[in-house]
Amino acid sequence: MTALGLLCPGHSAEDDYPRIEQLLGSDIRVDLARTDAGEETRRTDALGRMGAPERLAAGVQELRHTGAEAVVWACADGSFAYGWEGAHEQVRSLARTAGMPASSTSFAFVHAIRELGVGRVAVGATYPEEVTALFADFLRADGIEVVGVHSAGGVPAAGGGARGEAEVLSLARRADRPDAEAVLLPDTALSTAAHVTTLEEELGKPVLTASQVTVWEALRLADRRVNAPELGSLFNREPVVQV
């Protein structure tokens, strides 16, 4: 059994993770610990407070009790808002506190893009324009070419998960560009696990979503590779033989 630990701000899109766990198979468990999400706003100062070390540390003990082998801060804007270096320090601090490998959704996107071998991406987010721009800058800091950015406006995090398949597909279509090799939907408050394959079929290219890459990152930290085509191109890989 591989146990994965996720620190999640609030209760948005919480149905995504049980769905992903079910698709991964019976020997993987995804455990969630809720952190204080603070203000329901996408201002950068509030995002900084949401990802503060003391807030993340509050959920770590709960994950230790589950036997988690790795922990991921399941929040994109609460990590990339710190900038490239600040986000690195955030996960280093989390790893020290947790005593296990740690990462965040922001770095999950970076690592997933590398896994797919793509260099040009388009971004579709439910953030305000200035916050979406911070995510694009975060990707560029790793040498990733962002060929298009679409912001759907400042939807509060708690409301993001209410969007259905048609709205998620519309967001992805608006974000897509002909020269983009993949489309990224970075909001962890957006329920996407049930729609990844539909998104990829409609766009004809890989689609990376926040909950999908977050769980994939936890598996990567735990040295597990799982073939689960229902979760899109990122999971359509031959699994590593466990010895």
Rank of each mutant, 00 (worst) to 15 (best):
E129K: 10
R114Q: 12
G154I: 06
V121R: 02
E145S: 11
F138C: 07
A182R: 02
P128H: 07
R140W: 00
E200I: 11
G204P: 11
V147S: 06
F138Y: 15
E165F: 03
D179S: 14
P229G: 10
G204M: 09
T188Y: 00
V168T: 14
S151C: 09
V226L: 03
R224W: 04
Y127Q: 07
R174C: 00
E201M: 01
E115N: 00
E129L: 14
A158F: 07
A141C: 04
R224V: 09
V215G: 06
P186T: 05
L199Q: 01
G153M: 08
A172W: 06
L219C: 08
V241I: 13
R237K: 10
R173H: 14
D187H: 09
K205C: 10
S233Q: 14
L139R: 05
G160D: 01
A228S: 13
P186F: 12
S151E: 03
V241Q: 13
L199N: 03
A141L: 02
G232I: 12
A125W: 05
V226I: 14
L221V: 03
R163E: 07
H111F: 09
R120G: 05
R220D: 13
A172D: 09
A218Y: 00
S233C: 14
V121G: 02
D176L: 14
N236E: 11
R177A: 14
I144M: 11
R237E: 15
E202M: 11
R220E: 14
V123I: 15
T188Q: 01
A136S: 13
L221H: 06
R225I: 04
L231K: 07
A218D: 08
A136I: 02
T192C: 13
A218H: 04
V118R: 00
G148E: 12
V110E: 10
V146T: 09
